[in-house]
């Protein structure tokens, strides 16, 4: 790892001012992606601003129609939260299968979506549920947040504070993990919301997480696993690598969609 300067921020203002005075700083959430990247000398931030001590990023709350989760809440906390389990059980289930137990103890919701790894799980839920991302300066809708692989609409010094998920009637998530990395090779989050069915796919698309419009249409006509998995999925814009061709991923998207709907009930 290259040299770096570590700062622990006590508040959001403190964090942005630390970032402002850094040459080439990066925010540190749970560190589950950033630290391995730095270890492999693929990233060399001059400064790290640790967000782990900021109280504003903690907490899970629900008001009956919306579930709000602090950006600094770990995957293990989301998975184990009775609020999440009660409001959006699919989200708790999703969090319980991110990485491994040790990663879940450190990795955070905010870190995951800010990184927007094309094979991460959370982006599928955020997009499918039409969540709103609240930062230290504004609110961003999910549809405007993800801008392709590893890209988001966050500015360099912007910090995700929390994510608010409208509580759906029902929702399900099914993931087919990459056999080696265990990241999603195709992960489908299907939700039946007040705006109708919403389906988001992670792990498969060349541009990261995306909504599968044809499946949403099929599900609004008939909310059933068969309706979801019966939709033709084109392999054209899907990833292809040593673990799976785009054809195989297209198949997985259909199968996982059916299983997500089945899980939703």
């Amino acid at each position: 790892m290259y040299e770096t300067k570590y700062h622990k921020a006590g508040s959001l203002d403190n964090a942005t001012s630390l970032m402002g005075s850094a040459d080439d700083g990066k925010y540190l959430g749970g560190g589950m992606t950033l630290i391995p990247t730095m270890k492999q000398r693929l990233a060399a931030p001059s400064d790290l601003v640790d967000l782990g001590g900021i109280a504003d990023l903690q907490g899970i709350s629900t008001d009956g129609s919306t579930l709000t989760i602090g950006a600094g809440v770990t995957h293990a906390e989301v998975a184990g939260s009775s609020d999440v389990q009660g409001a959006i059980p699919a989200l708790a289930a999703l969090a319980s299968h991110i990485g491994d137990p040790h990663v879940r103890n450190c990795g955070t919701l905010g870190g995951s979506i800010a990184n927007n790894d094309p094979a991460a799980d959370y982006p599928a839920a955020v997009l499918a549920l039409g969540a709103t991302i609240k930062t230290n300066s504004r609110e961003i809708t999910a549809g405007d947040f993800f801008n392709g692989m590893f890209e988001t609409s966050l500015s360099d010094d912007e910090i995700i504070v929390s994510v608010s998920f409208p509580i759906p009637e029902k929702a399900g998530y099914a993931k087919f993990p990459n056999p080696a990395s265990r990241y999603a090779m195709a992960g489908v989050f299907a939700a039946s919301t007040s705006d109708g069915p919403r389906v988001a796919v992670t792990g498969a698309g060349q541009d990261g997480v995306y909504r599968e419009d044809a499946m949403e249409a099929a599900l609004s006509a008939d909310w059933s696993p068969a309706a979801a998995s019966g939709v033709d999925v084109s392999a054209d814009d899907l990833m292809s690598d040593i673990h799976g061709t785009s054809d195989y991923r297209a198949n997985l998207v259909k199968v996982m969609a059916g299983r997500a709907v089945e899980a939703a009930g």
């Binding site: 560190g31 630290i35 270890k39 790290l48 137990p101 040790h102 990663v103 103890n105 450190c106």
Partner: peptide, 25 residues
């Protein structure tokens, strides 16, 4: 790559990978 788990320790009662946490953290 934070996968093998040979480095697991408990920090404040939670199992974590000590190869993926800075000492200062």
């Amino acid at each position: 790559t934070s996968q093998c788990g040979a480095c697991v320790v408990h920090v404040d009662g939670k199992a974590i990978k000590s190869c993926t946490m800075l000492a200062v953290q």
